[in-house]
Nucleic acid binder design. Sequence first.
DNA 1: GTGAAAGCGCTAACAG
DNA 2: CTGTTAGCGCTTTCAC
Lengths: 342, 342
Amino acid sequence: MTPITIYDIAKEANVSVSTVSRVLNDTAPVRASTREKIMSIIAKHQFQPNAQARSLIKKETGTIAIILPDITNPFFPEVFWGAENEARGLGYTFFLCNTAGDYNRESEYLSMLREKRVDGIIFLGGRINMQTCPDDMAQELIDVGKRTPVVLVNGNIAKGGFHRVYTDEGAGAALAAEHLLELGHKDIAFVGGLKELSTTMVKVRAVQKKLREHGLEIPKDRLLLGSFSIDDGKREMAKLLESDNPPTAVICVNDNTAIGAMKTTIEHGLSIPRDISIVGFDDTPLASAVIPELTTVSQNTYQLGKLAVDKLHELINQRQVKKQTVLQPELIIRQSTGPAPR
Amino acid sequence: MTPITIYDIAKEANVSVSTVSRVLNDTAPVRASTREKIMSIIAKHQFQPNAQARSLIKKETGTIAIILPDITNPFFPEVFWGAENEARGLGYTFFLCNTAGDYNRESEYLSMLREKRVDGIIFLGGRINMQTCPDDMAQELIDVGKRTPVVLVNGNIAKGGFHRVYTDEGAGAALAAEHLLELGHKDIAFVGGLKELSTTMVKVRAVQKKLREHGLEIPKDRLLLGSFSIDDGKREMAKLLESDNPPTAVICVNDNTAIGAMKTTIEHGLSIPRDISIVGFDDTPLASAVIPELTTVSQNTYQLGKLAVDKLHELINQRQVKKQTVLQPELIIRQSTGPAPR
DNA sequence: GTGAAAGCGCTAACAG
DNA sequence: CTGTTAGCGCTTTCAC
């Protein structure tokens, strides 16, 4: 119960604190017998050195943080898992900061993390995904970046000069569009995603571009942005199906919305992919769990987290690192896409 | 870049460090003009006090940890979300420790967290879910508990005297069994879950008990334990369907396995619930996303996390708290269950 | 209202 | 090999 310190150990072993410190950190030779005596006393009291005190001197805390918008969206746990697994091996402990898409919360966390002197920060979603990030929010992150290593995942701050690892989401969306085009689809819709976020618009633009190459486009009434949830997928898809002008294929901003869209489609008595083809994004575990299995763009989510930590680690240790690491997505063709009807 | 301290601020403001400390913590009256001068200097340098140094004195870090087995299983992010949301309001930052079901990793984390002097620990899964937890593992956690407040969620250590919040999983399983019984099912199977874990066996026993009350039972060949993944659900269900003796209803250890089981069932050309009824556990977001929608037992997952933090907070502040908080589960009847065939 | 000084628990020279 | 002695950056008496 009583907080026991290195001094208590030293006294009981009849040595100085520095000797105890030496055995604790193996930082200088200590006579074997002394070492053993000290170790046994440490074990007896279950003594564990106070990391706070050590950090104060060493100017490192062995702690990194990940800021992300929604741990409840299966994409993020997967990233986290890749990051944490790697970080643990490197000796870090992870702060997880869930911002729920609230920019104030991001700011609060940024501030807390500075006070706690984390060794580095991995940032996903939120402001680094905004189409146009307000200057003050951008500046805030840039200021943090001056004092603490930061790695952005799947996002960016214009002119921020940040280190980043990201998936080429545009390329992924183009892959999806191409696949649909090859299947003969001409009436293609896009569903889901906040229109303020670049992760949405990058995909939309890439699809538009690909379609235009074929003399096609997504008309306004087939561009149904919303959010990233299953429910939103249901909602937008319902609008689409009840419109004058339903598509034969839809590209969804992520797997969640795709699954919602599938559900609504089937509930409307349509068959996937016979009547409508649907493609998702992220290849979360759900994609292969639903019926029909979802054709989707794989982001290699685990790697995203792992590589972010690797980069952060190099940064923390002041080593040279490439500013950017780009991951190429891959189209996973499953059962939810097929030839255009008729 | 240069680490700026309270001393730098004091010097620039021509005051002593104690005065700066006072305005930082609002811990004693400071003349308005002095305060303003100090504040402006703080703002100018974007100074943020070093939490490590403060913790050293105050003996609290404003940090709590959650240890859990698999952030990738949708149940846990939900718990985390409830916990984090509550904790943030109370001024804590969260360490997330993913153990991947590895008991060594639990031990490592337990040790790190002690060194980092977290204010409290929330523990899920792993050893607190073992049918019989080896003495050394139990003792390790008990020792941690002597120095750091610990709350166990949905698990226990026999004779550990821990504070706990948990769902009455047995009652939930009984609800599921009862529902199937009322629908006229007599051939009921149980799918998924590690047999070493109490979270599995509590459910199995509750179902057995309920069935016996009706002169029924789950025979050995309809008790297919495995793990908690979608894939395991598929695997076990396949065995069941290909056996001599397929059931008319199956209770799954969680939603993941239920979804896997549904998939396999449908792929075998059977109809749910006409040929087979399936019930899950946890009511994760998936449950209402699949077709047919899954009948499942809701655990009120968010509350589990929230209440754990509340209890931990009380403990940290040395207040009286009930040792146990039990949440009653609820059966959510959707589309995957129906009358027994014939 | 404000300052001086003594630590919090540990590491890191610097002497022996 | 081992002990002494400064701090790390902050809070907190205790005086004034």
